[in-house]
């Protein structure tokens, strides 16, 4: 098999993916009354990437052969898909949804930036514990739970920064801090995986080569377990971090674009007019 045959023959039309995607689209259509705006395009793109990440060769390779393919899928599902879904939800819809209990109170708790931060960064750290990851790729049900949890946690993570309801968002500078500290969290994990040495995830060391592509991957493409793991770690580290970086740039751009009133005014006494005084203290 050459690389093109591999890429064309490893599509895997998982029913649960297609059903979820259909439900997401129909649900969106019904709740918005099938009135599509520019935002809807983002939402639909999000669903599309969701499907692609889970039915394309990325899924098959990431589950059996290549940690790096898993990592690309992971970044798509945790950072890209939820962001696009969230950006695509109209404000009015989100406001209506937040009035429905228990969703409203749940988002109040989960949307708390500290909880959302720990969930977002924790999803990366916990799901990548080597023993857990090795178990997950071998277990269909756990695997589905993991993928869905990525998207849900991703939505919670982005909520304090890109919530459709402005009042739920953090102020721009705090958002930047929120994102850069998350970037640090993902950097440290990426660094650990990159420099840990081959064999951190034993599932990829000797995969059951049912379609006979291992020689191609290991030989022709030079994706030895060590290189594969490095690519995975670095993908989390560098492109992963760039997503947070771009997001902070977007918040800063939005901030400078917004009218001045929305900004917090310092409330300390020290900022008042200093009056003439020769006293030192």
């Amino acid at each position: 098999m050459n690389i093109w045959q591999v890429l064309s023959s490893t599509w895997n039309m998982e029913p649960w993916v297609l059903i979820t995607a259909l439900a997401l689209l129909v649900g969106y259509g019904i709740t918005t009354g099938f009135r599509f705006t520019k935002l809807s395009a983002l939402y639909i793109l999000g669903v599309l990437i969701f499907v692609l990440a889970l039915v394309s060769p990325l899924d098959y390779l990431g589950r059996t052969y290549l940690f790096s393919a898993h990592m690309i899928q992971h970044i798509l599902l945790l950072l890209i898909v939820p962001l696009l879904l969230l950006l695509g939800i109209p404000k009015a819809l989100a406001e209506r949804a937040l009035k429905i209990e228990p969703l409203g109170s749940a988002m109040k708790v989960l949307g708390n930036p500290i909880i959302a931060w720990f969930l977002g960064v924790g999803a990366m750290w916990v799901w990548h514990l080597p023993s857990l990851h090795n178990t997950v790729v071998a277990n269909d049900n756990l695997y589905i739970v993991q993928q869905i949890s990525f998207v849900l946690i991703g939505i919670i993570f982005w909520w304090p920064v890109f919530s459709p309801v402005e009042s739920r968002r953090l102020s721009p500078l705090v958002s930047t801090l929120y994102l850069s500290s998350a970037c640090l969290g993902c950097t440290i994990l990426g660094m650990l995986i990159t420099f840990a040495g081959a064999g951190l995830y034993t599932a990829y060391l000797n995969p059951a080569d049912s379609i006979g592509i291992l020689p191609l991957l290991r030989g022709e493409l030079c994706l030895t377990p060590g290189v594969d793991q490095q690519i995975g770690g670095l993908t989390m580290w560098v492109p992963g971090c760039l997503i947070y970086l771009v997001a902070s740039m977007v918040t800063i751009a939005r901030w400078y674009g917004a009218p001045e009133e929305s900004e917090l005014i310092p409330n300390s006494g020290a900022g008042r007019l200093a009056t003439a005084s020769h006293k030192n203290k």
């Binding site: 930047t176 850069s180 970037c183 640090l184 950097t187 990159t194 420099f195 060590g226 290189v227 490095q230 690519i231 670095l234 580290w237 560098v238 971090c241 947070y244 970086l245 902070s248 740039m249 800063i252 751009a253 400078y256």
Partner: peptide, 29 residues
């Protein structure tokens, strides 16, 4: 000017290994 400063600050913490190209971290790194 202000925004690019934040970008520089964030990027600067993730690129140190370019001081270590000669160490042998591997081609991918």
């Amino acid at each position: 000017v202000a925004g690019s400063t934040v970008a520089i600050g964030l990027l600067s913490v993730g690129v140190w290994a370019h001081h270590m190209f000669a160490v042998g971290l591997g081609n991918v790194a």
